[in-house]
């Protein structure tokens, strides 16, 4: 079970920051501002951020940005990054051609 989170708790207003247009998810080109907005829209878990913004959903599957996003959620919510669950790791951990994958069971 996940940790108790009352999604109505006050995390303050979304204040624009000078580096909001900096890219965080390199694959899907999702900016810091977009992720911060998602957090203020109520997306408080890594998975919700991923599904809501596509950050971490690109070709590399969040291998670079996950750690950064975790830190961002923690900062906006005022909690420790330790308390934030990671995204589910998914098969395949590297991109694989459909043809190549299919040969596994012929």
């Amino acid at each position: 079970m996940a940790e108790y989170l009352d999604r109505s708790s006050d995390i303050g207003k979304l204040v624009a920051m000078p580096d909001d247009d900096m890219i965080i998810c390199r694959c899907e080109e999702i900016t810091k501002g977009e992720i911060r907005k998602a957090i203020h829209d109520g997306m408080w878990t890594m998975t919700e951020i991923k599904r809501y913004t596509r950050a971490g959903m690109g070709l590399c599957q969040g291998q670079t940005c996950s750690r950064i996003i975790k830190g961002m959620i923690a900062k906006e919510l005022g909690v420790l990054p330790l308390s934030i669950d990671d995204n589910t790791a998914r098969v395949p951990v590297r991109p694989v051609e459909v043809r190549v994958y299919g040969k596994g069971i012929n």
């Binding site: 098969v91 395949p92 694989v96 190549v100 299919g102 040969k103 596994g104």
Partner: peptide
């Protein structure tokens, strides 16, 4: 599952 020699 392993990708090897163009197949899984």
């Amino acid at each position: 599952a392993v990708v090897e020699n163009e197949q899984v």
